[in-house]
Design a protein around this nucleic acid. Structure first.
Lengths: 231, 231
DNA sequence: GCAAAAGTGTTGCTTCTACACCCATGG
DNA sequence: CCATGGGTGTAGAAGCAACACTTTTGC
């Protein structure tokens, strides 16, 4: 806080958080939306959100909202922009801090979907959203794309154990382009961040593909030595 | 805005904007700070900030604060994070949206410095700041560094006409490393984004160095064709 | 003429890209 | 046995880093 000539502590505002929740499965990159069950804009599709409480930080509020809808804790959750246009919310003036979350879709319980009328939507084909939530989603996608370039956040969207092909499919979904399978494999393995398990996954091919696990500790170590993740 | 189970429109908060203002001259990358002339924390060094008004957006509020302190309009100004910890401000609970601005230090009028008790500080050596402003500065620096990698925002910090050496000095200041003069020149010129003027600047050397101008239109065109700026 | 910055050229190395090709196996 | 995805190898192109070398000119 701060001021120069203004009168401080005078006007106050509603403050909310909204969460863009991303997931990934064999159909591609998805987005969790729900149908509003209250006014304004009741019945329309919307992001998950909630109002800030006096005794919690913005980050806490976002975690709370995310935990309520997904039942999950310790999820990748990062603030990316705060929306403050005067008429962005048709009900009242609300300043909204937007967060994006990356979850392992397999960890997600279907019960929450039913309880809140939530549903996964492809990021390329989701319904019209209330207020400026469409803008938020597009901006979150851009943030995700740009972040994924230089930080290994893609693994947040995959199960703990995955094949190189699954990983490539994920990056192809994020960047909306294809990668040469051989070159992709060589590049990611050359980073020495993936540990190969002595187990093959046979669901994707007859031959079977080795499962790998991302080694977070090794990444931290390499990073502190100047290594830069890049894909 | 949005909610799930909470009571909406109940608690309200002070909302502010804070600006991290960067400039660049032959001494390096600088930061504009001022001495607070009001409570709390009067007399301490602080970022420029101001409270949000009911009839203005966050972006507008940030522009207003920036214009007030610098007298400048149409400046590069971008929101990068919103700070919302409960006790971040010792005076009252304030949610603050932080913006960073890039200005051409030569355009900046000294009168503002005097009027507000403002002062330029090297980004490597600035005084202790109030509240979480130090955190904001470091985060703004990180954002600047990461943004500068893939977008030609460095030119916002240079005069309209500049030499390749000035440009290199700027990037060396941003990234805190050196670049080989020959290689840097070849790389930036190979992008075909700089127009050479038939004028030499003699202040930096006896031989004189050609002045260049960044061609924003050409950049937009290249970008729309898939070109990616990278330095 | 010498120092010092501007600017060009060269060379060897690394990385990228495209694509050929072998492997393993369920059906 | 063959189609399919898994996985390895390779050759040419492109990019990069280090550094030699040439140009210009004020002192």
């Amino acid at each position: 806080m701060n001021e120069i000539v203004d009168k401080p502590y005078f006007f106050k505002f509603n403050v909310a958080v909204d969460c863009i929740i991303f997931g990934f499965d064999d159909e591609g990159l998805k987005l969790l939306l729900y149908k509003r069950n209250f006014e304004p804009e009741i019945g329309k599709w919307s992001l998950m959100g909630g109002f800030l409480s006096p005794e919690e930080s913005l980050d806490k509020a976002a975690s709370r909202v995310l935990a309520k809808i997904t039942g999950l804790k310790n999820i990748f959750l990062e603030q990316f922009h705060t929306y403050g246009d005067v008429n962005r919310d048709t009900g009242a003036r609300v300043i909204s801090a937007a967060y994006y979350a990356l979850i392992k879709i397999s960890d997600f319980s279907q019960s929450m979907i039913d309880e809140f009328g939530a549903q996964w939507w492809p990021v390329n084909d989701y319904p019209e959203l209330v207020f400026d939530h469409g803008v938020m989603v597009e901006s979150a996608l851009e943030t995700l794309r740009s972040k994924a370039k230089n930080e290994p956040i893609g693994f947040e969207l995959l199960p703990r154990f995955f094949t190189i092909t699954q990983l490539r499919n994920l990056y192809e979904a994020i960047y909306q382009r294809t990668f040469d399978p051989g070159n992709f494999r060589k590049k990611i393995l050359s980073m020495k961040l993936l540990d190969r398990l002595p187990i093959k996954d046979k669901t994707g091919s007859k031959k079977g593909a080795f499962l790998y696990e991302f080694n977070q500790n090794r990444y931290e170590r390499f990073k502190s030595q100047g290594f830069l993740f890049e894909l």
